[in-house]
């Protein structure tokens, strides 16, 4: 998966996993808390399968029959690049907004 193909939802999952390994329900709750986006179960596992195939996420041994997932080094690198790009766009936009309003 190239950085250009990292979807918004995949980025949210990676951002959630950047804070530590989580299983499905914990992922949904965490993403809802920090981003205000509620992922559907289908969307979650669709993204997880894509991310796992791309080596950006890996599963850990089951805990209480639930599989925790964690971000890989490659996933962290891709997420950092993506967030830096987003931050640059956000800073530029905010600065221009401030200049235009002044």
């Amino acid at each position: 998966m190239s950085k250009n193909r990292l979807s918004e939802r995949s980025a949210l999952i990676l951002a959630s996993l950047a804070g530590g390994a989580k299983h499905g329900y914990a992922l949904i709750k965490d993403i809802q808390d920090f981003a205000g986006v509620r992922l559907g179960p289908g969307t979650l596992y669709g993204c997880l399968s894509t991310l796992e195939e791309s080596g950006l996420v890996e599963s850990l041994p089951a805990v209480d029959r639930r599989l925790p997932y964690r971000i890989t080094a490659l996933g962290a690198e891709l997420l950092r690049t993506r967030l830096e790009e987003s931050a640059r766009v956000a800073q530029t936009g905010l600065a221009r907004l401030q200049g235009g309003l002044a």
């Binding site: 299983h23 499905g24 329900y25 949904i28 179960p41 289908g42 979650l44 596992y45 669709g46 997880l48 399968s49 796992e52 089951a62 029959r65 639930r66 599989l67």
Partner: peptide
């Protein structure tokens, strides 16, 4: 879902549905 995805995530998905 595709067979591969189903087999890979069946148990975990079931637990998520139970949690929900």
């Amino acid at each position: 879902a595709p067979t591969q995805t189903r087999h890979r995530y069946r148990g975990d998905f079931g637990m998520l549905i139970d949690d929900l």
